[in-house]
Design a binder for these strands. Structure first.
Lengths: 243, 243
DNA sequence: CGCCAGGTTGATTTCGCTCAAGCAATGTGG
DNA sequence: CCACATTGCTTGAGCGAAATCAACCTGGCG
């Protein structure tokens, strides 16, 4: 850990991270408990937030930067499972299941992350049943998304999965240029994108070239320009609902 | 619906389905509410409990028989996602997420299934926060299992996934014979087993033959005899933790 | 008896993997 | 500042797993 990883208490969470989340049901006194116990820290790229197998100590709120959640496969390769952007929460699954972490969270771009210990969360959960109800809904939705993801992986081609990933990334790191085309910056290396799709980087390379030669999409470095996003994303919808 | 699908109220759930489940936290008065509102029914093989896209009306408790949870892939093929045995609950994910069903439940062997309407469940949840806490833990664990399943599908071979499935089925429909070998009855067709593994039935056929020629395992009809279960299951563990 | 669903088998193709080489951009130590 | 290593990415050749297509078997059943 470098010197930039300063530990400091902070009241930073109240306005930014509570509104519009499950924490919005907290009373002002509970918000006070929250803020008195939250600890914020800066992380450098490459720093580890938690490791697969660790006991879960609480919740992590990504305030800025980018965090990748990874798992090692049987051959020792890293598989990127999730990218956590500002506003995202990490570690609630093992916390609520009372299990250990099943994946590793690694900072991919200098980040500020706030931490709330699990004792405080359980205190808040016992004080305020509404918070539990919110978490319950959130977890059930995540379960649906996980099932969907599983089904997508076994039933769609790598190409369609890639188009879907572009559609998802678009919300996070895409912007529309004046001529109506969509531009997006891949936040991670192509190798990591490939691992998110469940393919090797070589296969991803070939996939990119294939799509590029069709004309709609242009790749240069980490920037992707999509001339006609509607048309491209329609291919994903068509693969899901082929009627 | 045939005449055997009689609708009848019943108090059947109290002893059998409550103990050892999340419902064990209910007070006796709450158990009364539960029992007054639960409706049990008999289903024939082939009957549909709910269909993908349906609004979720409540929870289903499988009392006897066998129910398959399926989804249609883009090419119109059925993928079997889950087998629900007596004691299993269906529909809690869409109920808690306040979403529609994302899969279809079809009875695969004559079954008795009890139903509790969602209003009652929400009433019980609001009366008893402990019930919510139990559901929260259950859902978070299911989320972990779903992630695990996803990871298994992308990182393990069909062969290893099949061995893992045998290991899971063993708990439900396996029994040890006098000479120490394990015997299990596949509850569904080979075609459906193949779909659970994410492969075609032809590929599954070849996989079975390959394993059979190695000698440890013998397949005849829906009966599988495993001479040395330890040795076979070790192959699964070795694939997961290859150190 | 013939039909037919479930299952098997073979031939061929497709998709993605492995291995290996090469290239461009970036970093680093002398 | 140059030589060299490193990292990320691409490309090609060959291979392997599973899909597809097609034929065929087999046992149950109307």
């Amino acid at each position: 850990m470098k010197s930039s990883c300063v530990i400091h208490k902070s009241r930073c969470l109240a306005p930014r991270s509570i509104n519009g989340t499950e924490w919005s049901v907290l009373s002002s006194e509970e918000i006070k408990i929250f803020n008195q116990n939250v600890v914020c820290r800066s992380y450098n790229s490459g720093d580890i937030v938690f490791i697969e197998g660790d006991i879960c100590k609480g919740l992590y709120f990504v305030e800025s930067g980018l965090v990748g959640v990874k798992k090692m496969d049987a051959d020792g390769r890293q598989v990127l499972l999730l990218l956590a952007n500002p506003g995202d929460t990490l570690g609630y699954r093992p916390l609520l299941a009372k299990e250990n972490h099943r994946a590793t969270a690694e900072v991919m771009r200098e980040a500020k992350i706030c931490f709330l210990p699990k004792d405080i969360i359980h205190l808040l959960l016992s004080r305020n049943p509404q918070l539990g109800a919110k978490f319950l809904q959130r977890t059930a939705r995540a379960l649906g998304a996980a099932d969907e993801r599983f089904f997508e992986m076994v039933s769609l081609t790598a190409r369609v999965r890639f188009i879907h990933l572009l559609k998802i990334l678009q919300e996070r790191c895409g912007y529309v240029v004046e001529d109506g085309s969509l531009c997006l910056e891949l936040p991670v290396t192509r190798c990591e994108i490939a691992s998110m799709l469940g393919i090797r980087s070589e296969s991803f390379s070939r996939l990119v070239r294939e799509i590029e030669t069709e004309g709609f999409v242009h790749f240069s470095g980490s920037r992707i320009t999509i001339a006609n996003p509607e048309l491209l994303f329609k291919e994903f919808d068509a693969a899901l609902y082929p009627i």
